[in-house]
Every structure is written in C-alpha cells, then in structure tokens.
Design a protein around this nucleic acid. Structure first.
Length: 576
RNA sequence: CGGGGCGUAGCGUAGUGGCUAGCGCGCCUGCUUUGGGAGCAGGAGACCGGGAGUUCGAAUCUCCCCGCCCCGACCA
C-alpha cells in the first residue's frame, strides 16, 4: 500500500520552467520524475512504479510469445562494435569511455552485436532455430538534442529483441510473431497506435514497420488514411498514379520567357502568353542534386518540392546528397539555373529520376536549357527518358491513399515501437552461422524489434492527460484506487484505512491519502494530478453512512453506503 | 552543429550600478481551521551558475567558461 503520509512525493503547484510538453510538465509536477541532466531523469517512487508496470506488461507479452529474456551490461567493450564498424558509424551519438588501462568501452545504444555473439557462442545447428531473445535494458545515446522530457532522452529504457532464423520464410514468421505481440502489448498499455510502413531500403525482402502513438506533440510525421487505415512514414508513402490517357501533344515548342526563373513567375507568364488556367502542376520542376559526387536530376510537378529525406531514403546506397550549388552549375555549362529541362539530360550526362506523377506519355512545360527560354509539350518517352521513378516529392495532406484513393491526412506521433527485418548484416559481420540439414554452413538471418519503455510512460501520459492532470490506464497506473480521507476526526481515517486493507486483500493496488495535516482541497487536487484511475473519498459523507467513488477519466461520481461499498468498488474496478 | 532564449532558496519568480537580495508555493514552530491548492503569528533556507575584469561599490556592466530550454540539421 502506498501511504501519502510517508511517500517520497512532493507535488508542484507550478509548471517547471524547463518543460514544454504536457507529459514532461505533468510528470514533474505530479512527482514522478526529476531531471538530473539534459535528457537524463531520475524516477521517484510513483514514476518508478509506473515504469515497472510497463516493463511488466511488455515482459509478460514477450514471454507469452515464447521469447526468452536475457540481460546484457550497458557497459560494453569496443571490439564487437569495431567488427561491425558501428564504433565509427555511430559517430558522436555513442557514449565512449576508457577504463584505467586506456581500453575503449561504450555505453550500449542498442545491442545487435552482443545478441549475435551470444547466439554464436551457444548455438551451431539449424535445429536450435528459430530463436527470439529479448532484454529490457537502459540504453545510452548522446543525442545532439535531447528534448521533450523523457520522450527523447540520452538515457532511456528500451525493450529490444532479436530473432534468429535459418531462412527468409523463418524470419517472416518471427517478424509476424513480434508484430502480433506488439499489438497485444500496446493495446494492454491502453495506447492508441498506428502501424506504419517504414522505408525498408533495397535489401530484398526486408521489411520494417513503426508503431506510432498519435499525439500532437509527437516528433514524427506520418501519413494516415482515415478511411482504410493505411499508414506510412512520410518517407515510405507510395504515390499511385493512373497511366497517361490524354492524346499525344504537338512537337516541343520553345518560347521566350525572360526573367522567369521560378515556377510562380512561369505560371504568370503562361497565363498571359497562352491561355489562362495554367497551374504550377502543369510545369515540371528539375531539381538538380549531387549524389556522392554524381549530378542527378529529380523531376517533380511544379507545385511540389523535393523532400530530401524522402529522396535519400529511396536512393539506397547514396551516402551524401546535396542540392546543386553555383560551383556545380559552373561545372555543367549546359544547365542554366532556372531554365533546366530534362530533354538534354542524356547529352549532358545527368541521371534523371522522376516522381511517379511524371507518367510515361505525359507532357510538361519546363526549362529549355537556354537562358530566358522555356519549352512546352515536352513529353515523357518521346522527348526525355528517366532512369527510374522515385518517391522524392514532398507528401501533402490530401494526396491520395495508395490503397483506396481517399485523400490522406498528415498526423504527428511518437514512435513507441519498431520492428525490422535486419537480414544477415550482423550475422555476416560477426560470422554467425549454423549447419543446415545437409551439413552446410549457413549464415543466420535476423530481425530486431524495439519498444521504448520509458518513452511509453510519456507517450501514454500524452495520450491520456486532461486539464486536471495525468490520467493513467489501469494497468499502467501506480495504483488501482486512490483513497482520500478527509476531516479532522479519526473516524474517516480509520474507515479509509479499513477500506484500504480490504481492497488490498481483494487484490487491488491501493494508494491511501492518510495525511492528517493536508486540507481536502489539496488532497483532491493531488489525486487528480497523480491520475490513478479511481478515487474514493471517505469524509463528510460518513455522517450519512456514505462514501464517494469517482472515475478519474470520466469524472463520474457515485455514492455508496459504507457497508455495500467494498463489493461494488471491487466489481467496478475489476471490470474496468 | 547553426539560430534564439534563459541561469537569483526545493519549485515558480521580482530585482538594469547604491542600505541587510524581495515575493508566492513548499518546509519548520504555535494557535485556529478541515469538501476544492485555508487563516494568523513566528522561523529556517540563496557563496544571485563559475571565473576574471571595470568600479569607492556588481545579482545588475565587460570578457571567458559551464549548464539548461526552444526552433532547425541529425536521430539502426
């Protein structure tokens, strides 16, 4: 039983000055967490109970799916991360340190290497697979900018699991088992979430999905179709377009267009020079970039920008991507800034990618590759070709769902889980092989799966809080019921104590506000701020033989006779 | 890493060169009060982020450093 008279808890009346988002403000005000350093938080009793509740639920669902729990140190030697090159790849996000002998160590940001090595050390036969193992562990990432309280910290608790299979079909099965286990977990955590396709990269068959908890303060943007439920990362959104159905236009026609280096100025010119009614989407924007030293062009309709993140995600293998600068134009005299068109790309040695909206047969108004000249009726397939279609145009609300063609919305969310078919990258680097049926050595294929456990505390808070304070789902809450005793006589306190013990005997987790010196107003405010789902008040109603029972979320209040209250309350809570 | 802002008691803050750094919350003592963050009286608690400098005099001005927050870049 949690007794407020002795609980290490001091609620704050004012929002902390360094907090911006609701979960941060409330978790601090309600005495769940305290900041220790940027992105590093200490958990007070209420917060730690909540965190452990989430861990427990995650653990139960992982165990229920047949995954085995292990535990690695946070402090790890350099060598395995050297082997996979992540000692370098991770850059300054990695916390590195040295022991007294000057040997390099790191604080684990994630544990693929260690899990791979653990399996390598124990198993060597296909008969041992499949295997899925997990841990709940404190991770360290020296984020350049920790933010939003415990949503993005430098130290955080994560559940990470890894699956090991002989072949792709096995991996798909393990992946699916994790997916199902995650759905159960987040449902039990009382969270709203969407499963969103993430960019899988070019590795054949690899698949990746994120579990996103929608909430306005979330830092991830994603696309959602409210009709069919299609959801995708902005990077992974697929543009579906119909084949070109118009008639073939006349031959290309160059026209004068002085001082029209921008799409807007071009549209104005078209509407005066030719017929009114031209739109930016009739024009073709040629965005020039340098990808690992190679000049490339990305064609998008004139009303769209190129989303660099999306482009990079869909150009696997490209490390460095940047827009053309003046120096690049100088190197390519055939390209006239503001007047670029794709029709001479081959001659100029530029690789052309196109947004799928630039369908074969469609024709466009675009630059003529001459100063102060544009050209119209430039037709894909006749006047220019593209290397391939690429998803690089910015995604806008109202774009059509690739599944059901309904306009999509763009929403914000907190990433709370990620499942990923890793493939053989780590197994190959660390030489994790097993012998198959024929006695041949085969590289194992892996999946990795994460849940942000401490982040879930904040994400749940974000999704459930109201103007009075936190408002936890029952399984997550630090207690099932918060009993408030009010008055100056002993009686309400004695009655509350008795209820507390009986409810506890009935298997409920009880928090009892047995403070004799706090006023009723303070106790009510605290109860609402702390956010335990049910509140029982033992106070002035006792004179009429009654106690009060409140549902924190709905605000609904009822009164029960003292002798009937226990059974009713137990029943109500247990069916909640 | 670029841009912006902020550091005064546990928390929120006032104080732009001049007396012993002020107020609210919280905390301690006493009295009173007990259904919506009570009242009165008394009290404890601050090397004003750190260092150097200017000045008769610095929380206040200057320089350097450190820390924190926000926007952006970044984030298997």
């Amino acid at each position: 039983m949690l007794r407020m008279s002795t609980l290490l808890l001091r609620t704050l009346r004012d929002d902390p000055a360094d907090a911006e988002v609701a979960s941060h403000k409330l978790l601090v005000r309600a005495g769940y967490v305290r900041r220790v350093a940027a992105g590093i938080y200490a958990w007070l009793p209420l917060g730690y109970i909540t965190l452990r509740n989430i861990e427990r639920i995650v653990r139960e669902e992982m165990d229920g799916a047949g995954f085995q729990e292990v535990h690695f140190p946070a402090l790890l030697p350099r060598e395995p991360y050297e082997t996979t090159n992540r000692w370098n790849e991770y850059g300054s996000d990695l916390f590195r340190l040295q022991d007294r002998r000057g040997n390099d160590y790191l604080l684990g940001p994630t544990h693929e290497e260690m899990f791979t090595l653990m399996v390598k050390g124990e198993y060597s036969s296909y008969k041992d697979l499949p295997l899925s193992i997990y841990q709940i562990q404190t991770k360290y990432r020296d984020e350049t900018r920790p933010r939003s309280g415990i949503i993005r910290g430098r130290e955080f608790v994560m559940k990470d699991s890894y699956s090991f299979d002989l072949d792709d079909a096995g991996l798909a099965t393990s992946y699916e088992k994790h997916r199902v286990a995650y759905e159960k977990t987040f449902t039990r955590l009382g969270m709203k979430y969407n499963i969103v396709s993430a960019v899988s990269g070019a590795m054949g068959g690899s698949r990746s999905e994120e579990f996103l908890a929608p909430c306005p303060t979330g830092e991830d943007t994603y696309v959602l179709c409210e009709k069919c439920g299609y959801a995708a990362n902005v990077e992974a959104m697929i543009t579906k377009v119909a084949p070109y159905s118009g008639v073939a236009p006349a031959a290309m026609e160059i026209f004068d267009s002085p001082n029209t280096p921008t799409i807007d100025s071009l549209v104005d010119l078209l509407n005066t020079k030719f017929a009114p009614g031209h739109q930016a989407s009739d024009t073709l924007k040629n965005v020039l970039l340098v990808a690992d030293g190679q000049a490339i062009s990305v064609l998008v309709p004139g009303d769209r920008e190129v989303d660099l993140k999306r482009l990079q995600a869909n150009l696997p293998g490209v490390q460095e991507l940047r827009l053309f600068e003046d120096g690049d134009f100088a190197k390519h005299p055939g390209l006239v800034k503001g007047y670029v068109g794709p029709q001479d790309a081959k001659k100029l040695g530029i690789t052309v990618y196109a947004d799928p909206r630039v369908v074969l047969g469609s024709h466009w108004i675009t630059g003529a590759n001459q100063k102060d000249k544009h050209v119209r009726f430039v037709t894909h397939g006749r006047d220019f070709d593209v290397e391939k279609f690429i998803e690089a145009a910015e995604v806008k609300a109202g774009d059509l769902c690739p599944e059901c063609a309904t306009p999509v919305i763009i929403d914000r969310a907190i990433e709370i889980g990620h499942i990923f078919q890793l493939g053989r990258k780590y197994a190959e680097a660390l030489d994790l092989t097993v012998l198959d049926k024929d006695g041949k050595s085969k590289v194992v294929t892996m999946g990795s799966y994460g849940i942000g456990v401490s982040r879930a505390v904040a994400a749940i808070a974000e999704q459930t809080y109201d103007e009075m304070g936190l408002c936890w789902p029952r399984e997550v809450a630090p207690a099932d019921i918060h009993i408030v005793a009010t008055g100056k006589d002993d009686e309400p306190f004695n009655v509350a104590e008795k209820f507390a013990q009986e409810l506890e005997q009935a298997g409920l987790r009880v928090m009892l506000d047995d403070r004799r010196d706090a006023s009723p107003g303070v106790k009510f405010k605290d109860a609402e701020l702390i956010g335990i789902p049910f509140i029982m008040v033992v106070g002035k109603g006792l004179a009429d033989g009654k106690v009060e029972f409140r549902d924190r979320k709905s605000g609904e209040k009822s009164e029960f006779a003292v002798d009937a209250a226990l059974a009713t309350i137990i029943a109500t809570i247990n069916q909640a």
